[in-house]
Design a protein around this nucleic acid. Sequence first.
DNA 1: TTGAAAGCGCTAACAT
DNA 2: ATGTTAGCGCTTTCAA
Lengths: 354, 354
Amino acid sequence: MNLKNIRIKDIAKLAGVSKGTVDRVLHKRGRVSEQAYQRVMQVLEEIDYKPNLIARTLSSNKNYRIVALLPDPSADEYWAQTKEGIHQAETEWVHYNVTIEVSTFDQYNKESFKEKAVSAIQSKPDGIITAPIFYNEAIVFFHALKSETIPYVLFNTNIPEVEPLSFIGQDSFHSGKVGAELMYLGQHEGGRLAVLHLDEDIHNSVHLLEKERGFREYFQQKNRLSFDIRELSLRPNEPGFEENIETLLTDPLLRGIFVSTSKGTSVVAELLEKNGKQKIRLIGYDILDENLKYLRTGTIDFLINQNPKRQAFLSISHLANHLVFKKCAPKQDLFPLEVITQQNLDSYLQSGIH
Amino acid sequence: MNLKNIRIKDIAKLAGVSKGTVDRVLHKRGRVSEQAYQRVMQVLEEIDYKPNLIARTLSSNKNYRIVALLPDPSADEYWAQTKEGIHQAETEWVHYNVTIEVSTFDQYNKESFKEKAVSAIQSKPDGIITAPIFYNEAIVFFHALKSETIPYVLFNTNIPEVEPLSFIGQDSFHSGKVGAELMYLGQHEGGRLAVLHLDEDIHNSVHLLEKERGFREYFQQKNRLSFDIRELSLRPNEPGFEENIETLLTDPLLRGIFVSTSKGTSVVAELLEKNGKQKIRLIGYDILDENLKYLRTGTIDFLINQNPKRQAFLSISHLANHLVFKKCAPKQDLFPLEVITQQNLDSYLQSGIH
DNA sequence: TTGAAAGCGCTAACAT
DNA sequence: ATGTTAGCGCTTTCAA
């Protein structure tokens, strides 16, 4: 109360120059004499100037446009949750003149991604967030963004080498280790375990393989070698898909299944129930309606929550903070690896974005 | 872009009055003729006016003072984390002229609480957040706050009947159920289980008893009656405390211990190690340094994360949003019941407040 | 009861 | 290169 914040006006007075000059120094706009520059800098070093961000945003009256490029959420609950997070972020940032355009592509079609990526760039947004599920195509995209100096934030899938402003999501390797830990819990006699990748395009999805690597690493590290770990990569729409899994289930030594994708988890659960094999431990990903059904019946034992909603929410927040307030975003914002069980599920469902 | 937000100026023009009149109507300040009032209201009903909050805070230039009343954090890691959350919130809200005064009391001394509570009220803050660990004293305090119309937010411990602006924290009953679930995991043969309340003043702490109720409920609901559940309430500073617990440990049927407090968890872990009883399952609360030590050695099997930092952070946020932006806070913000294991621990340590 | 006007702190256009 | 000034949208004071 007694010591009010220092304003540009005050700095100007202290340095014996005008507000305009101080502003030019602060924003490195040039057109300032060496002498004036020094005088202002000296004052700035002595005091701790903190610009009033409220005044700045009101005054500058800039609009920021962010494009969010993600898989079509209309038929996919995981990406629908992502979209929710984006909308929630939008309502918070609308006050700061941040608008968000959601652009969606077909998650099974690389061409569709490329197409939307191109138009995203052409619309010259102030920033982009995206889930780069197609590795090769994404690389090209980010290269273009970099040369246009459009900042981009990645979520869900990390591609460190493209040096995004920020990556938001989980560490897939450790995620796999958590899966393994939950698999081992109270089940120590050994046997066979299966890692299932149920996706269209496994080899383009590094993070699924990372989960598997983490899963295996856990058992190796702990020298729990009485477990034999099999890997199976299947496309859920392929003919013979169900038979393939059912063959796996006939193995009397099979103790557990770790599914690396959220949609795949309930597919396997259904087959377990159909074949009366609920006792085989099943661990998968995410709070999707289908998964919850089987978590509640006990066929799914644990879910690891990737929290797509929060991923999207924070992606927008970090980017908007960067644009509006010039705050530097963290290189990575790695989420906790949340374990969902029958008993704590409801507490997750009722809690908002945190 | 083409359709800019409607300003007070625009409303004034549409209604054929001045900005001042519109403002008086919007804020119900009176001093407006019936005629002018009607004209403004009519315009307001037709359009969707959303005040520019940025302009409002810049203009009104109000200062808000929040008092945070909590147990002394200097010798207690749990409350230290709480304080951290408050500071983090402070840096976010300082832009909106929100200042926070932390007032601490002795968590083992009700008089100390009463004293600090009185001076908090006397300082006439714009709002208060507190962890009401002394039930009876808190009731009196909130009654006084209500009559002074000072809004208050509760965290950590809920007292629904005092009707706070908001409660932030966990549902203790379900928290106990999660504890029970983790206790039962892969340990189905039955035996003896102990619920330990290691606190100074158990009967003033409803939420500890709620945890126990949840814990018991789980086993009853599931008809897992082969478990015999004992309850033990002890003060850690009392003579004979260790002996009491060590007697408990000699029971050959003892399968697990559920500790309802965060500090108590590591105390029990130490005794388990000392007596070579690490195989007894131990479940407790919170990511405190001492607890982590034993989680890493495996003596503590699971921790349930109450997230004191986030509790404090959100308490401030909800209250500040209420004061600054007139946003209505949720009656309750119940946190997810996070399960911490050896493998997901690091992911929790490295992630910030979300 | 009403309107006009100053000002919150900062930005940016405009003279000089 | 520098200082002055007119806003951003809202609040609040003051005169009418």
